[in-house]
Design a protein around this nucleic acid. Sequence first.
DNA 1: CGCGATTTGTGCACGTCTTCACAAGCGCCT
DNA 2: AGGCGCTTGTGAAGACGTGCACAAATCGCG
Lengths: 256, 256
Amino acid sequence: MSQHRHPGAPGRAGAVPALPDLPEATVARLPEYLRALHNLADAGHETVSSEGLAGAAGVNSAKLRKDLSHLGSYGTRGVGYDVALLIDQIEFVLGLTQRRAVALVGVGNLGHALAGYDGFASRGFRIAALFDADASRVGEMINGLVVRHIDELPRVAAEEAISIGVIATPAPAAQAVAEQLVAVGVTSILNFAPCVLSVPDGVDVRKVDLAIELQILSFHEHRKASLTALPAAGGSALTALPGGLATPDTQEAIGT
Amino acid sequence: MSQHRHPGAPGRAGAVPALPDLPEATVARLPEYLRALHNLADAGHETVSSEGLAGAAGVNSAKLRKDLSHLGSYGTRGVGYDVALLIDQIEFVLGLTQRRAVALVGVGNLGHALAGYDGFASRGFRIAALFDADASRVGEMINGLVVRHIDELPRVAAEEAISIGVIATPAPAAQAVAEQLVAVGVTSILNFAPCVLSVPDGVDVRKVDLAIELQILSFHEHRKASLTALPAAGGSALTALPGGLATPDTQEAIGT
DNA sequence: CGCGATTTGTGCACGTCTTCACAAGCGCCT
DNA sequence: AGGCGCTTGTGAAGACGTGCACAAATCGCG
């Protein structure tokens, strides 16, 4: 099914062409493909096979082909995918054709680092404003931006079209900040505070918790240790664990 | 199935009792339960129902019960779970009964923030050493730790039992660092560099890419915008999107 | 001592994601 | 023009994860 997507194929038409609703798992992998494609483009490649791109993105080729097929992408059989075209398609689907404005709330340890992280700028985002509730931090300049008090959020949001809010406050403050963001119309939030946010329907929240990532790794360490401690069968070489047990595919199991 | 786990129920015996191999999705949620449980304990609760804990952790209660049943946990029907006992069990399964030593490589913008993040210490980890390849950064003190040159990794690893390596270098350096970590026996790596690491079997890698998180949110923004732009049916209130479309369960869909 | 209210643990059905395997399509070489 | 090798796109099967709904178990109260 689904032969013809994106009516006039190459130059995407001005109006929004009703996004095919992609499986969430696919959406989570598209950014990785995009990054790999940029690398390939920089290295001078004009086309790439599903095998090649899959290798660069750390997935298997069947998965990659199915993912790309979902967005109606046109590869050429016998040849592969056109790198530049595919970059355009993925950037379009991800909504990266416009440079989205990000508001960052909480300029502590982590917030500072995020404000200075140039990976955002290079991958389609612009940090439009910094906020904090701590009066002693207000006025500070970070990376060319001045830290504003959180109460100024409504005024600033009226000027800049804030697309995404990033919360990097301590946990106790996060829920209130989320509500303030929602109140000014933000419908996508990236939460670094270790707590659950409750938001109205229609608002997307993604959470990144650094300690949780370590704890998941800790589990696997613990399991590996217990396996070698009670050796079920022969082998002692710790690189040659039973097989199915060792790292099924942790690498991309994260995004999902 | 699975009545009796952990032979002598409460005080876990000295030896390792052969971890039940949990579904990966469950493992990813346990840390969240743990955090919620600590909050409950601090608030003075001695027991909690699956409904209550599920609410605090942002999942539904059936999922929570199934997750806990996997680790053979004993709740009491009609009452709920003993908070303190459950904390012990989860911490044991996650391997948090020992305070794991973490080596952090790359003391740039992000690395600095990570080194100063006290969430690690409070949740079972100890940053044991900081490394960087840049000679101008070596010797700097961060949070009571001195930054060492990456070449000292083998010597330091011999002293401290490094359990987990964290890579916060620029992408081009990450693969080499990963290999150095593996060479000194590290089998769990948390990678913040935007690139795919290739490591031997038996080594677990988890990746956190901040730009990818934003790009996933961007997709949802883009989709929401395209939906309201071509209004299929009646409603205009942007909080009342069709329902199935709005945020199925992004909140916990992350860990997986 | 028995009963009802409550809450866990789980069998089952459903949906989603992954993987295999192969037909269809494309370019190139003869 | 024809055939051959390569690569995509996809049907189908299997693995995995989720959520419902209910039986089994426990507590407290009369």
